[in-house]
Design a protein around this nucleic acid. Structure first.
Length: 285
DNA sequence: TGAATTTGACCTTG
DNA sequence: CAAGGTCAAATTCA
């Protein structure tokens, strides 16, 4: 078992590196493309390249996160794979021992994000809510809507005490249903739960005013550690493509951001920053 | 009417 | 035993 996991670790690591290199190459392509006049750009749009870059990072992170699972963990497989926890019949009455409680508590394959929204471009289904001790707000429990297909991704969302418009989201397990990853909406207008998300569409006249309010509100809600530099990128189109929050918050759907932010992301910083320097950043078709 | 959410009971963990 | 995580019936929504 040990050597198998060891091999697996290196295989995944290698795959992750390949993905990163691929992403970097695409980023270079994107950079080159953006230096060309729109008429000379050919069939591939910058937006498509940006999506590919995102996908590359996503795949990389997926591989890396799998590496973090302890090789020797004898964790009980999620309920559907466990004979001990599998139910004989789909419906059982209360009192009969069923699969309730057959869960893993937080594993190493978990990460926490803070965001003004709970949206992360995956489809989730809420399956529970609990009031938490010493917490003003209840914690909501979500699972991937594609659980039936074997996806074990879970997340817990809780408002942050003292920072009411921020949510702390704890993710458990990665999506195995990659194809269900919904592309970020081209128009991020508002969130049903929290309207702090920003629209990158050319604002209509009546939206400009609310946009200003939004800016003020967001600046108020930025945590102490957030840099003013980051706050100034409100119209950052990168967010629309990648889901990275332009307000200086943590990325909205970037697992392992704390570890990766300073490594992988900064690896692209130069190119990304150069992209932002380009005045005519046409990435929409 | 099917899908999604709510809610209280049940279960495990520490 | 308390706290937190999950289940599933009931309820709501589209």
């Amino acid at each position: 078992m040990g050597s198998l996991s060891f091999d697996n670790f290196h295989a995944r690591k290698k795959k992750a590196m390949v993905e990163l290199v691929k992403g970097k190459e695409i980023a270079v392509q994107l950079q080159t493309l953006l230096h060309k006049p729109v008429s000379d750009r050919g069939p591939v749009s910058p937006k498509q390249l940006a999506v590919l870059i995102y996908r590359s990072f996503s795949d990389t992170l997926s591989e890396l996160s799998s590496c973090t699972t302890p090789p020797d963990s004898d964790q009980i497989p999620a309920a559907e794979g466990s004979s001990a926890c599998s139910a004989e019949s789909p419906k059982k009455k209360r009192g009969v021992k069923d699969r309730r409680g057959c869960y893993k508590r937080r594993t190493s394959d978990s990460w926490v994000t803070r965001s003004p929204t709970i949206e992360d471009n995956y489809a989730w289904r809420k399956y529970g809510q609990k009031t938490i001790m010493n917490s003003e707000y209840p914690r909501s429990y979500f699972r991937c809507t594609h659980k039936q297909e074997g996806c074990k991704a879970l997340k817990q969302v809780q408002r942050i005490k003292g920072d009411e418009i921020m949510y702390q989201t704890t993710y458990l397990n990665h999506h195995s249903c990659k194809e269900t990853l919904r592309p970020p909406p081209l128009l991020v207008n508002s969130d049903p739960i929290d309207p702090n998300l920003i629209s990158f569409q050319t604002p209509k006249q009546d939206q400009i005013q609310s946009s200003k309010k939004l800016t003020v509100k967001c600046e108020e809600c930025v945590s102490e550690g957030a840099s003013n530099e980051a706050k100034s990128t409100l119209e950052d189109p990168w967010h629309d493509i990648t889901g990275l929050d332009p307000l200086g918050y943590k990325p909205l759907w970037f697992p392992y951001q704390d570890e990766v932010e300073s490594a992988s992301l900064h690896g692209l910083d130069m190119e990304v920053n150069q992209l932002f320097d380009i005045q005519n950043f046409h990435y929409f078709d």
